[in-house]
């Protein structure tokens, strides 16, 4: 029961990531792609959490923290580059 529900959620999140990927390719401007990247990585954090539950290994959550940190830094670095603040 619980595992089925979690599996369905994982598939929905995958579909969501696919949709953001559409925006990522289509653009039309560079900030649009950056928004898509941001939403994609934050959704992946949820997916990493689910994968950690499926394989019952807490160490994947460390990976999620580092991934969230890097995506935050990446978005800020690219935005600061856009506005010439780097």
């Amino acid at each position: 029961m619980v595992n089925t529900l979690l599996f369905i959620s994982a598939i929905i999140i995958l579909l969501a990531i696919l949709l953001t990927f559409y925006r990522f390719i289509k653009g039309p401007t560079a900030p649009d792609r950056l928004v898509a990247f941001d939403v994609m990585t934050v959704s992946s954090l949820a997916l990493i959490g689910l994968i950690a539950k499926f394989s019952s290994r807490i160490i994947y959550l460390d990976v999620a923290i580092v991934y969230g940190l890097l995506s935050f830094l990446g978005v800020i670095i690219v935005s600061r580059y856009f506005e010439r603040g780097l």
């Binding site: 529900l5 369905i8 969501a16 949709l19 949820a46």
Partner: peptide, 18 residues
């Protein structure tokens, strides 16, 4: 599990909004 499902639906709606 229901909360997880709800969360994934919100993620999907956000992607749709995007």
């Amino acid at each position: 599990a229901v909360l997880v499902l709800l969360g994934s639906v919100f993620l999907f709606l956000g992607a749709l909004g995007l």
